[in-house]
Design a protein around this nucleic acid. Sequence first.
DNA 1: AACGTTTAAGCAATCGCTTTCAAGTAAATA
DNA 2: TATTTACTTGAAAGCGATTGCTTAAACGTT
Lengths: 343, 343
Amino acid sequence: MINKKKTTIKDIASVLNISPAAVSKALHDDSRISTKTKEAVKKVAKELNYQPNHLASALRRGKSNLVGVIVPRTNSNFFSSVIQNIEEVLNKEGYNIIITQSNESYKKECSNIDTLLFTQVDGIIASMANETISLDYYEKVKSKGIPLILFDRGENDLNVDYIGINDYESSQMIVEHLVEQGCKRIAHIGGYRRTRIFNNRIKGYVDALKKYDLPLDESLLIESSLTLEDGRDKMMQLLNLKNRPDAVYVAGDYAALGALQILNENNINIPNDIALIGFGNEPFTAMVTPTITSISQHSTEIGKLAALTFLERVNNPEIKQTLNKKILDAELIVRDSSNVKKL
Amino acid sequence: MINKKKTTIKDIASVLNISPAAVSKALHDDSRISTKTKEAVKKVAKELNYQPNHLASALRRGKSNLVGVIVPRTNSNFFSSVIQNIEEVLNKEGYNIIITQSNESYKKECSNIDTLLFTQVDGIIASMANETISLDYYEKVKSKGIPLILFDRGENDLNVDYIGINDYESSQMIVEHLVEQGCKRIAHIGGYRRTRIFNNRIKGYVDALKKYDLPLDESLLIESSLTLEDGRDKMMQLLNLKNRPDAVYVAGDYAALGALQILNENNINIPNDIALIGFGNEPFTAMVTPTITSISQHSTEIGKLAALTFLERVNNPEIKQTLNKKILDAELIVRDSSNVKKL
DNA sequence: AACGTTTAAGCAATCGCTTTCAAGTAAATA
DNA sequence: TATTTACTTGAAAGCGATTGCTTAAACGTT
């Protein structure tokens, strides 16, 4: 039968007639061990198919080399791309990641945090659920003294690292672009105001209108959960206005898709009757008809930066955790849904 | 300052003047401990904000309560849904999952396996990368004696558990449906033959043609990587035939989307000129114009079954690992791209 | 020749928790 | 009263790897 007993450093030690301690040191290229012994140890280790017991070393060193990642869902191009880049950077440094999903639920997010703390992760990188308002649980993480890095959804007053894009500026770019297309009545289906990033997008929208001398019509500024369904509802609401908008900027791609469906179903010409812009640059924005203009959030950079920020923290525990915002510039990807000239 | 020293069972023990052993037992509701002591222990544990050290108990018990999951990518509705359901079932049983992505690369998949073994996972649930042919690495997992469960991509000769849908039958359903729509020249853009599931789809397609007395035209049966790009290329290839097909069944939704783009770009009426069917029921199939008929793979059930299968294995280690296929029936979701009658 | 320095490896204590076995106490039985 | 029996708890031995402290030998230096 197959040998199921795992080989330990003790086994290697007894083969070579040296102590387990020497084996451990040899495997870590400790300078106190001779090259000859090191080679012998490594050779035997390979022969016995030795696999270090991560749990034991983690216990001893008080480090699990595991990093927890919390995202609202993995089923989104943005998050899965962020995750992939976090993983790439951290794997190189010997860390593994544990991914958990909150499904936009605060309760699930809390239990995720518990799970991760229970697993003795060395740090947590998270993007908060839409629902999340209370920060108790994140305070808990902070109080454990392990690095906490937030991205995208998570700008906050927790005094921890944050990585995101410039939402305010993004809104400005969008409005500017729409104005260039000749739009005068620009609506905004925004996210929940209590979420910082959505609030920033709203602020950017409002200020941009002011900048271009466009009146702010309260009926054109709508708060939404930004799901596909709600995008449909809110778009319908806009269509029912006596004075319809000539452009709609939706703060999320899924909701933008819902809006697009309503427009198509009502045979409204996009972008000539109403131009449409989303946010997030999900792949489907380039797949639907017409393709949807959107904002790219630089998921690659965000992921890498988040990972690097964690590494910085974990390698310099003496530096006190403080607010450290890294804000990236976003990019407007112009597609058919807002490209009036082209049509 | 915040108390960063973690409380251990020793701390609780010393507060109550009992032994750490008693505390351990009390926390596990061991019958040998009096109710009074248990209550006292739990109260103190809460007061001291005790969090069990997972590493220590895992080391001691030789179980990490971690399950590794390997998927080609999380950025797909199918996989992310499977993952979510695996997580749901396993969390209830006290397991956490570590998700890794292979990005369809065999090399990455191997390193993922190494990572997971290193992390001392109690089992691995995986769907193999497209590239994966050699099974050495999975043999390695098997030889470690930890449960290995494969799903979707992974039907194999490894003699391990496998959960998937009935690909052969799915193809039959698709062809049957197309025949009902009046199609006579049905093309199939299939996946790589070496991958069992794609081969099964091809077989189902071929046999179904026979069943309905349709001739098998080799130029209508194409092997593809099933990426969006390749879907475009292969669709183009079909359009260039002297004798075009009147229906195309694509073995993957992304490639089907590519095909749809080409058809739209060439102003070919879907489904009247050419009907189109995908596979996987990715959300975007319901978002594009026209919506794409596709096969739902019951990701929910697959995830749950995979998790339950793992639990069965891990709770009955005495039962030898054997081939144990669980094949679910798939469901055809008819949409505009193949609904001739409706238009 | 005497002593300090390097180099190479071992010893033993931990990390925090679990588990077996024995022991102590109280209650029950003979 | 003596002996079981049941019930609680404690002591101690690890799980496997790491690490500070020693030791022992080899090497140099006056």
